[in-house]
Design a protein around this nucleic acid. Structure first.
Lengths: 337, 337
DNA sequence: CTGAAAGCGCTTACAG
DNA sequence: CTGAAAGCGCTTACAG
C-alpha cells in the first residue's frame, strides 16, 4: 500500500521525527509520554524536528501499542433539550485537559440504541464509559462490567452500581420538595411525573413524606420523557378535568415548569398567587423566567467533574473506596412557589 | 506484557475466533469487512465462534491496519442551549448506521479550544471533521485542509469553504425577514444582533433590504453569544432608553425571542399587539410558546443528514461536484409577528 | 538517559 | 473462496 492517499500527502511518522532529531523512535515516544526522562538537549532537537515536520502523533497506533485508547464513551439519552448538557460540557472540558476524547452516544429515551453503543465503546476499547441513564438489562450490565475498564453511572445512586455512581438520591429530592411545600402552607399539590424510574423515585419520596405529614393524597399525571415545554399544554388540559384545583404544580423539569407558568398566565392566573409552580434542574431559564422559578438545583457540571475524577483515579491504578458519590442537591426558593 | 489487565479478563482476539472456526484470521476479517465473499457454511462457523467467544472486534487495531478510523470529529461551540443540537443528533443517528462514531469537541464561543480539538481530530486520524462554527485563522484552515480527509462546514455558506459546506445564506435570511416585516406593515424594527459573523450577515441583509424598500434605519443592539434567555433583560433595558419605541423586535434566537415576550408581558404589553417579536431557528419552544413565535425555520436535522451524505460519498471515493450545499430556510408566520 | 527489537490486533495484496 | 505473511505506527520491557 502506498502511503499517499487521496491527494493529501502522507502524514509524517515518529520515524521521520526520530531521523531528523538523530535519535531512536523510542526516545521520541518517551518525549511525548514521559518527558521527564529525556535529556533537555535531546528534547530540544526533538521539538525542532516535530515543528519542522509538522508531526502529529498517531493516537490510533499509540492506543494499540499502549492498550490505552484515551477515549471515553459518554452515553446520554439525547442532547436536544437535555438536563445533562452541563455534565457533558464539564466532562469534555476536563477530559480535554488530559488529552482524552469524548465519544458521544445518543441512546434515545427508550434505550433502543444502547446495546449498539456499548458494543461500539467496547470495540473502540474506551478507557471508560460514562452513562447518565439507567441500564436495566442484565446482558448489557454484564457486557459493561466484563469489557469496560470502568463504568460510571451518573445522575442517580443505584442500589447496585456496575462500578461506581456519581449522583444524588431522587427519593430524597421528593422528600425535600414535599417538606418545602408543606412548610409554605400549600395543601393540594399536583405532581407532574416523567415516565421514568428516577422521576418515579422523586414522586415516591414526595408521596411518602407528604402523607407522613398528614397531607391529603396529591393528584398526579404521567408525562412522556424527555420532558418538553409543549407537555405543559397536556398537563393544563388534564388540570381542567380535575374537580378540585391544585394550589401547586410540581414539575419534572424547569422547561415544563416554564410551560406551566406560560399556560397559567395565558389563562389569566397569577403565579404563584393562584398557582405555585416548582421545577427541577435549575437550568439557566429558571432564574431568568418571570416569575423566577423555584426549583431543585443539581450541580450537573460537578457531576461531570467528579466522574472525570473517578476516571483519573482509575487510570492512576487506585481502586475506589466508595461506590456511590453523592453530590447532593438543594432547593432554590424563588418567586414561583 | 501479559494480556490480563486490572482483573478484567483479556478480550478475545480475531485469532481466537479463527482457531475456533477453523479458518485463518484473514477469513474472519473478511467476514466482517466484506461478508459477501465468504462461503455461507464458513460464515456459519464464524458466527458460532464469535458467539461462543463473545468476540468484539478491536476497532483500534482495525483502524491502524485499514487506515480508516471510522471516527468523525464534530466540533461545535457548545451544547448547553444550542441551536445545533438537532444537527448533532441527526449526525449521530446517521453515522451510527455506518458503524461510525462521533468524537464530540466543544470549542467554546471564542474558539479558544479549536486548535487543540483539530489536533485531536488529526491525531485520531478522523475520517472527517464537521464544524458548525467558522474557522477564520489561516493556520487552522491549513491544518484541516492538509491533514483531514474531508472537512465539512455547516450552518453557513462561506465564500471559500475548506472542502465543502452545508448550510444556507444568512444574508438571505435577513433579506427575507425584512420583507416579511415590511409586508406586514411594521415600520420600526429593532434588531437584536448576536456578536458573531453569521448574525451580522443576517443583520446586513436585513438593513440592505429594509432601506432599499424605503424603511427608516432600524435601531439595534449587540448581544453576547451564545444567545441566552436572560439576555432579554438586557435588551429590554436598552429599549427603555430608546426615544422612539420599536413596533417589532427581530431576535437572533428563539430563546431570546421567548425572553422578550416574557419581558413584554411582564411589562404589561401585548405581543404582537403592542410589540411584535421574531425569532430564529424554529426550536420546539417557538411553536409551544404563548403566543406562538414567528421565526425562521432551519432544518438542522437535514443539515446533519446532508453532512453525513457528503461523508459517505467521500468514503465511496466520489469527488464532490459542488462545494456549497444550500438547504435553505423558511419563515414560519405564527402569532408573535 | 538511550537504543534495538518485539509486539499490540487487525487488514489486505498476492497467490492459489 | 481461502491462507500465509507483511505491514499499519506506535509503546515498552530489557539491556546498556
Amino acid at each position: 500500500m502506498t502511503r499517499e492517499r487521496r491527494g493529501r500527502p502522507a502524514a509524517p511518522r515518529l520515524e521521520d521525527v526520530a531521523a531528523r532529531a538523530r535519535v531512536s523512535t523510542a526516545t521520541v515516544s518517551r518525549f511525548y509520554n514521559n518527558p521527564g526522562i529525556v535529556a533537555p538537549r535531546t528534547a530540544q532537537r526533538i521539538r525542532a524536528a516535530i515543528r519542522s515536520t509538522g508531526y502529529v502523533p498517531n493516537a490510533i497506533a499509540g492506543g494499540l501499542a499502549s492498550n490505552r485508547s484515551r477515549v471515553v464513551s459518554v452515553l446520554v439519552p439525547e442532547i436536544a433539550q437535555s438536563i445533562f448538557n452541563d455534565t457533558i460540557e464539564a466532562m469534555c472540558a476536563e477530559l480535554a485537559k488530559d488529552g482524552i476524547v469524548v465519544m458521544l452516544g445518543l441512546t434515545g429515551a427508550d434505550d433502543q440504541r444502547l446495546a449498539a453503543l456499548i458494543e461500539a465503546a467496547v470495540a473502540r476499547r474506551a478507557d471508560g464509559v460514562i452513562l447518565t441513564g439507567i441500564v436495566s438489562r442484565e446482558s448489557m450490565r454484564r457486557l459493561l462490567r466484563k469489557r469496560c475498564p470502568v463504568v460510571i453511572e451518573t445522575w442517580g445512586l443505584p442500589r447496585d452500581p456496575i462500578d461506581i455512581a456519581v449522583g444524588f438520591s431522587h427519593d430524597a429530592v421528593g422528600v425535600a420538595v414535599a417538606r418545602f411545600l408543606m412548610e409554605r402552607g400549600y395543601q393540594r399539590p399536583h405532581l407532574v411525573v416523567g415516565d421514568g424510574q428516577r422521576a418515579r423515585a422523586r414522586r415516591d419520596g414526595f408521596l411518602r413524606e407528604w402523607s407522613a405529614a398528614g397531607g391529603a393524597t396529591p393528584t398526579e399525571i404521567i408525562t412522556p420523557l424527555p420532558s418538553r415545554f409543549g407537555h405543559a399544554r397536556l398537563v393544563w388540559r388534564h388540570l381542567a378535568e380535575l374537580g378540585q384545583q391544585p394550589d401547586a404544580v410540581v414539575c419534572g423539569s424547569d422547561i415544563l415548569a416554564q410551560g406551566i407558568i406560560v399556560e397559567a398566565q395565558a389563562a389569566g392566573l397569577r403565579v404563584p398567587g393562584d398557582l405555585a409552580v416548582v421545577g427541577f434542574g435549575n437550568l439557566q431559564v429558571a432564574s431568568d423566567m418571570r416569575p423566577t422559578i423555584t426549583t431543585v438545583d443539581v450541580d450537573g457540571a460537578r457531576i461531570g467533574r467528579e466522574a472525570v475524577a473517578v476516571l483519573r483515579r482509575h487510570a492512576a491504578g487506585q481502586r475506589p473506596s466508595e461506590r456511590l458519590i453523592d453530590v447532593g442537591f438543594r432547593i432554590i426558593a424563588r418567586e414561583s412557589a
